[in-house]
Structures are given as C-alpha cells and as structure tokens.
C-alpha cells in the first residue's frame, strides 16, 4: 500500500491505475493502526548500569532495565520494532574479553529486529564482526557499504521490509565514511558509497517497489557537524532526500531534548532522532495510521 502518491503529481496516472484494481471494501470501513519504533545507538558494550559513583551517569543505563522497559511497551503494543543505529561494540571489558558475543546475544534476547553498522563495530576487524554474527538473531542493514569483496558479503542486507499489523515498514541502513576514521586493515575492501545517492535509491525502492507505508533510515552518519558544513549528517541527509519518515541516528552521541522535526527536499516534515549513547536512553516513536479515506484531508500531526 502507498500513501505518498498525493505528493507525486507525476505519478497520478499510475496511482489511479493501481487504485482501479482495489476492491471497494478497502474504503468501506475505518481502522486505526498503531506502530511503535524503539531505538538505541552507540551503546558501546555498556551492558551494566554505570556505577553509583560515576561522575556523570550514576546508576543510569543497563540492558536488563532496558529489557523490562521494552517488555512493557511490547505488551502495550505488540506491533513494535526495536532497532539499533550502530557502535554496539567497544567501551567496556566485555568487548575486550568476548569480542561482542555478549552484546549480540543480549540484543537477540531483547528481540532486536535490526541494526546498522557503526565504525567501532570494525574494531576487531571485519573478521571480528563476522565471527560474532552467529550470535545475532537480528539483521544487519547497510545500503551504502558494499561488502562484495569481504567476508560480510551476503550477510548484510541493504534494507528489510517488516510487516506489523498489515503496515509495511521499510528499514534501510547507512554507514559513515570509514577512510580516516578506521584503520583500512580493519575494514579491508569494504566500499563506502555516497549516502545521499544511496538513500534516494532506497527510498525509491521502498516506496515504489516494496510499497512501504513507513520508511525508516537507520543511520550512523552523525546528527550534525557544525564546523564541517559539507559533511554528510542526518540533518543534511533529511534535507536532500524525500519520502523518508524517520531517520534514527548515531555516531555523534547526541542527546536531544526532543526528536527533531526538519524539512526534506520537497518541504515535507521528517523526524530525526538520536538518544545519546551507552544505553542511557531508549528512543520511542509512535506512528498512528487510519484507513478512513476521509481522514487524509485532515492532515497529520507530529507531537514531540
């Protein structure tokens, strides 16, 4: 199903044709649907809460607490996706000792649906990441890293379409440029492709070919670079693309007072969010749908 045809004047004819094939009943009744997206980023192997004596984050965080919180939300709305925006690895001895095994096993127990790859996820080399994949019961998504000539070939997908409550949710991943950030011996022949071009292609595929109702970008590009205006970031990406509903970010460890509402290339609203780091917060975005055809004229509201 598609809801975006109204902004694509050029595709009006196609849309009408598609509509012609639909049974009339689709318009007869109104049904409300609710999708919840939960997300983390830059957890950096922080499995336990910070110590009580910690100077900045005393007794905050902890994956066992996050599990309780997520369980509660899933009970309230079973149509929930749980995503991570990368840098799962590196930051506590758990990573030094087990190479990410515990992180992946715990994320699997929490039933993460997908994650993208951060620069620190290469800290034990691409082989170190590959070695831990059997412990992850969730998908790794990256559309702009080309792993063709590496061990990760076929193990990382550009995107995945989830169906929750008959709503199609397309999620694609984007990674940061590794050159200059990660030792080339670590990422080997991973090819970094332009995130903007990749995102445009992904949004086209997810909207036009996969007919998603919701498109989410899982990004490790960073929220915004004040001193480097031209460096690609989530805010830059949002302004240069369209038909993406939500960008979940990471890398810059940005704590936002609230999710950012910004404009895309055609002036529509896009939500950009990031929840700091170290598992201190869980991001929650709720999407409400209505099948009543009259509802559309009333517009949508964003409450942050």
């Amino acid at each position: 199903m598609k809801r975006r045809n109204f902004i694509k004047k050029t595709s009006a004819a196609t849309a009408l044709l598609t509509l012609g094939g639909l049974p009339l009943q689709s318009f007869a009744t109104s049904e409300k649907k609710h999708i919840t997206i939960l997300h983390t980023n830059d957890v950096h192997s922080h499995i336990e809460p910070f110590e009580n004596s910690h100077y900045k984050y005393p007794n905050l965080g902890g994956i066992a607490r996050r599990a309780t919180l997520i369980d509660g939300i899933r009970k309230e709305n079973p149509h929930t996706l749980l995503l991570d925006a990368g840098d799962i690895f590196q930051g506590t001895p758990f990573f030094n000792f087990y190479g990410g095994e515990l992180e992946f096993k715990l994320m699997s127990m929490l039933q993460y649906d997908a994650a993208t790859i951060g620069n620190h996820d290469f800290d034990n080399g691409i082989d170190g990441l590959y070695a831990q994949l059997p412990h992850a019961k969730f998908d790794f998504l990256s559309a702009n890293y080309d792993f063709k000539n590496t061990v990760l070939d076929t193990h990382v997908k550009p995107y995945k379409v989830f169906v929750k409550n008959d709503i199609k949710i397309g999620v694609f991943g984007l990674g940061i440029e590794l050159k200059g950030l990660v030792d080339p011996r670590m990422y080997k022949e991973t090819v970094y492709n332009n995130p903007v071009e990749t995102a445009r292609e992904m949004s086209r595929i997810l909207n036009e070919e996969e007919h998603c109702d919701l498109v989410i970008c899982l990004s490790h590009l960073g929220y915004h670079y004040k001193k480097e205006e031209n460096k690609i970031s989530d805010l830059e990406l949002a302004s240069k693309t369209k038909d993406i509903d939500l960008i979940i970010g990471g890398h810059t460890h940005t704590f936002l007072p609230k999710p950012t509402v910004t404009k895309n290339i055609v002036g529509e609203n896009v939500l950009v969010n990031q929840v700091g780091c170290y598992g201190l917060n869980l991001g929650r975005i709720d999407f409400y749908f209505d099948t009543d055809k009259n509802i559309e004229s009333k517009g949508k509201s964003i409450i942050v």
């Binding site: 199903m1 598609k2 809801r3 045809n5 109204f6 009006a12 849309a15 009408l16 598609t18 509509l19 639909l22 689709s26 318009f27 049904e31 649907k33 809460p49 905050l60 965080g61 902890g62 607490r65 996050r66 919180l69 008959d166 709503i167 109702d213 919701l214 509903d245 936002l256 609230k258 999710p259 939500l271 969010n273 929840v275 598992g279 201190l280 917060n281 869980l282 991001g283 929650r284 975005i285 709720d286 999407f287 409400y288 749908f289 209505d290 099948t291 009543d292 055809k293 509802i295 559309e296 004229s297 009333k298 949508k300 509201s301 964003i302 409450i303 942050v304």
Partner: peptide, 20 residues
C-alpha cells in the same frame, strides 16, 4: 488528490525519549 490515495494514512506521529 483525495481520490488518488490509498489507505492506510499516517495521521499522527509521537516521539519521546525514555531514560533508563
């Protein structure tokens, strides 16, 4: 354009951060 769309329509988005 009202006839050219198909449901479901996105009507509301709510976003917040939950501290652990």
């Amino acid at each position: 354009l009202s006839c050219k769309n198909k449901p479901p329509f996105l009507t509301k988005i709510e976003g917040k951060q939950l501290p652990i």
